[in-house]
Design a binder for these strands. Structure first.
Length: 282
DNA sequence: CCAATTGTTATTTA
DNA sequence: ATAAATAACAATTG
């Protein structure tokens, strides 16, 4: 489920709940696949009695920094990727975890819960001050100055035969973009999802670049700024002028042209577009 | 039973 | 050899 803006919302939710509080206990569902490759005993031991010292979100990942005691020896990093169905929630201190609640951090007042039924998500843990590799390797954010038209153009050239929709989902250049954001960007840029990446004109590349930035920024305002989490396609705060609230309804109509929307698999994912607005060329 | 699902990665195919 | 397509991962819902 979560892409860029929802990930940021979840991060803020945990950060707010854990602010200035000590973690009094840690529970892990050890056999859950979200812990593949992580030492859950080490995680429990290191976080017990620790305090949250900071956090960040980038792409579809989050990192929570913890500190225990004064020195750098007590520092550690908790990484979370929510996969397709993961969610971070905050519950009462005595919350009883259910089947899909894989990680619970308790403070005196609250329980921070990671829930993920499908377990495509992942929890990583590393002790020490140094930033984990996987975090350092995340591509520069779409809203950062490093995300330039030139960088996008070079990337599209290397993937010239792939449909542009598939290329937008590649995290190494478009970190945080998921299925609905990709459709929203292509719709705004008036590009057909099956258009080969190498066939975009210079003007189209520029439009694509601008709409990537615009959709990220709008999504962060509307979704990450909200109090509660609502699945993006049912979020009442999403303006009807976006493609998003129309894209999953059969017989949905394009808010710009009034024409029927189409839905097909492109680049292996269900894709929605407005044929009257987004046309294949050459 | 079948098809669907807002993600990533390993494997297969072209 | 490279890039693109597909299968696989797991669970649930319609």
């Amino acid at each position: 489920m979560p892409e860029l803006a929802e990930v940021e919302l979840f991060r803020r939710r945990w950060a707010r709940a854990a602010a200035r509080a000590r973690i009094l206990s840690v529970e892990t569902h050890d056999r859950a696949a979200v812990f593949r490759g992580t030492d859950t005993a080490e995680l429990r031991c290191a976080l017990n009695g620790a305090m949250l010292s900071g956090s960040a979100a980038a792409a579809k990942q989050m990192i929570f920094h913890f500190r225990r005691g004064a020195g750098s020896a007590g520092a550690s990093h908790l990484g979370i990727h929510l996969g397709m169905s993961g969610e971070l929630t905050v519950r009462d201190a005595d919350f009883a975890p259910g089947r899909h609640d894989h990680l619970v951090l308790r403070t005196a007042r609250k329980s921070l819960v990671l829930n993920d039924p499908r377990m495509f998500g992942r929890v990583q843990f590393q002790r020490g001050q140094a930033m984990p590799d996987w975090w350092a390797r995340i591509a520069p954010a779409i809203l950062s100055p490093q995300f330039t038209v030139e960088a996008v153009e070079a990337f599209l050239r290397r993937r010239r035969r792939a449909p542009i929709k598939a290329v937008l989902l590649m995290q190494e250049r478009f970190p945080g973009i998921g299925n609905w954001m990709a459709d929203e960007i292509l719709w705004r840029a008036a590009l057909h999802p099956r258009q080969p990446a190498g066939r975009l004109t210079a003007g189209e590349v520029r439009r694509l670049w601008r709409e990537c930035r615009r959709v990220c920024s709008l999504a962060l305002d509307v979704i990450a700024g909200a109090e509660d989490h609502v699945p993006a396609h049912r979020n009442r705060k999403i303006p009807r002028t976006w493609l998003l609230p129309h894209r999953w309804r059969d017989g949905g109509r394009c808010p710009r042209t009034g024409g029927h929307l189409r839905r097909e698999t492109v680049g292996g994912r269900t894709t929605c577009w407005s044929p009257r607005r987004q046309k294949l060329h050459r």
